[in-house]
Amino acid sequence: MNVFRLTGDLSHLAAIIILLLKIWKSRSCAGISGKSQILFALVFTTRYLDLLTSFISLYNTSMKIIYVGCAYATVYLIYAKFRATYDGNHDTFRVEFLVVPVGGLAFLVNHDFSPLEILWTFSIYLESVAILPQLFMISKTGEAETITTHYLFCLGVYRALYLFNWIWRFYFEGFFDMIAIVAGVVQTILYCDFFYLYITKVLKGKKLSLPA
């Protein structure tokens, strides 16, 4: 464990909690892409199957259970409890254009052709593009609630911190995983446009609104 991975995990946890609390307290999922949340639930489900097969640490196991639990709770709030507030007209990204290519790539480019490894690889590739429906929805509505921008900022920062974690681990532990690194770089790049808007607007107290 190093400071980049720990702060990355805490940033990821913060993002997940911020979103869950925002929906729960405001009793509304307006502006939130349910499709992205389904993709995240799929990412955690396919990545954390090793919960059943291997124990790494109490931290690792408990965080995985929290992530999976919150992901499904968020999907439940969006599609069941507060379904009336779900903005389906703007959440129109064609996720099959993400899942199918990512699924194919996971079969073609992986470290080991075993079910667990292919599912892990699928989850790594999927996570790198899972935020696209949410970013697409914001570009369609032309704006985002400030709390949603904080959620996105924490979510984007987490994987950027993981990039530093991988530099650290390569240098000190001689470990690197090219699949995770390339996907992590792609994932972080997808947030750059949002980071720019967040830093130049939201941090100056303005609302995040895109030229629609």
Binding site: H12, D50, K64, H111, A180
Partner: peptide, 10 residues
Amino acid sequence: DLHINPKDEL
């Protein structure tokens, strides 16, 4: 070897 991912990350 450099490559084996211990899968100890979240």
